[in-house]
């Protein structure tokens, strides 16, 4: 665990993640107090203005400040992401850990259900359910996403629990007659925190992704601003065809930044597990190889004198 936080990639990834969380938390204050505007206010003097001057990131076709929308949208997107992530990982833990720990017929049933849900094309399914629900608020969207996102996480957790179950200390506790649930909560769960947090991070990003996709397709009413709605409006109001890149580019990049941050954390975890990939050790290797290459050049010939 100490290695975890000293890894550069993990640090950067978590920092980016934290920064977005912070913006999501204090975003509305930032917009109202620092920028002195709100995401819906229309500036009739600057309709579709390019970045610069009063509007740092320009305005939309209808004269709304892009930066203010971006900051406000962060809250909308991240909130949905977090909620769906909690739900997905929660359900996954319930299904995966239970199945993996209890085993037998229960496990077979749960695995079958997991596999069925994993195989069903989730995006069209979400689209349809959302289509039936006349007015879908952010909470409903988050629940919907979480509901279709858990199978992947459940698989990982089940596999991990299975391997934990086989370990000596769990076997020993079984012998002693420790109660099942106490064992799961006190002995198994702590060993799963690593994978749980990694899965949660990924689930949050998937949530942000999917929310943006659904909002882009016009699912989910209300006037809440998210990165997805920004891109959707940019397309609908001809922001793309008019070349207003400052409108549709930033929200997409922010989503990608969030995704890259998660990828970085996972890269870092890989490196901790597999030292060959570690950059600093690569540097050391490079020095040593250079040293050997120099030696090779000095001998310069394949034959050695005998």
């Amino acid at each position: 665990m100490s290695q975890f936080l000293t890894n550069g990639k993990v640090r950067i990834g978590l920092a980016v993640f934290g920064a977005f969380l912070l913006i999501a938390l204090i975003g509305s204050w930032l917009v109202s107090s620092v920028l002195g505007t709100d995401p819906h206010r229309i500036d009739y003097d600057a309709l579709g203005a390019a970045p610069g001057g009063e509007h740092l990131l320009g305005t939309t076709t209808s004269g709304q400040d892009v930066l203010a929308q971006l900051i406000t949208g962060c809250r909308g997107s991240v909130a949905v992401g977090l909620l769906s992530g909690v739900l997905a990982v929660g359900v996954a833990a319930l299904v995966g850990v239970t199945g993996g720990f209890i085993g037998g017929r229960t496990d077979q049933m749960l695995t079958a259900v997991t596999n069925i849900f994993a195989t069903l094309p989730s995006f069209p399914l979400m689209l349809i359910v959302a289509g039936y629900m006349a007015n879908v608020g952010p909470v409903a969207i988050a629940l919907l996403i979480g509901l279709f996102e858990w199978p992947v996480c459940a698989r990982y957790l089940r596999a991990q629990t299975l391997s934990l179950r086989g370990r000596d200390f769990v076997q020993a506790l079984r012998m002693v007659g420790e109660s099942r649930w106490r064992m799961v909560l006190v002995e198994i769960m702590p060993h799963l925190t690593g994978i749980l947090s990694s899965l949660f991070l990924r689930a949050v990003v998937t949530g942000v992704f999917t929310e943006a996709g659904l909002r882009f397709l016009g699912i989910g009413g209300g006037d809440s601003v998210t990165w997805g709605t920004m891109i959707a409006f940019a397309q609908q109001q001809e922001g793309v065809v008019r070349g207003m890149w400052w409108w549709f580019a930033p929200p997409g990049l922010f989503i990608a930044l969030l995704g890259t941050a998660t990828a970085l954390v996972n890269f870092g975890l890989d490196e901790i597990g597999n030292p060959v990939l570690r950059h600093s050790s690569r540097a050391a290797v490079r020095r040593a190889t250079a040293h050997m290459a120099a030696r090779r050049d000095r001998t310069n010939t394949v034959e050695v004198a005998s």
């Binding site: 943006a212 549709f248 997409g252 990608a256």
Partner: peptide, 15 residues
């Protein structure tokens, strides 16, 4: 690649 992979598909399509 990790960055590219993080780009939302619909946004990429717009780009």
């Amino acid at each position: 690649t990790a960055f590219f992979y993080s780009l939302p598909p619909f946004w990429l399509a717009l780009l």
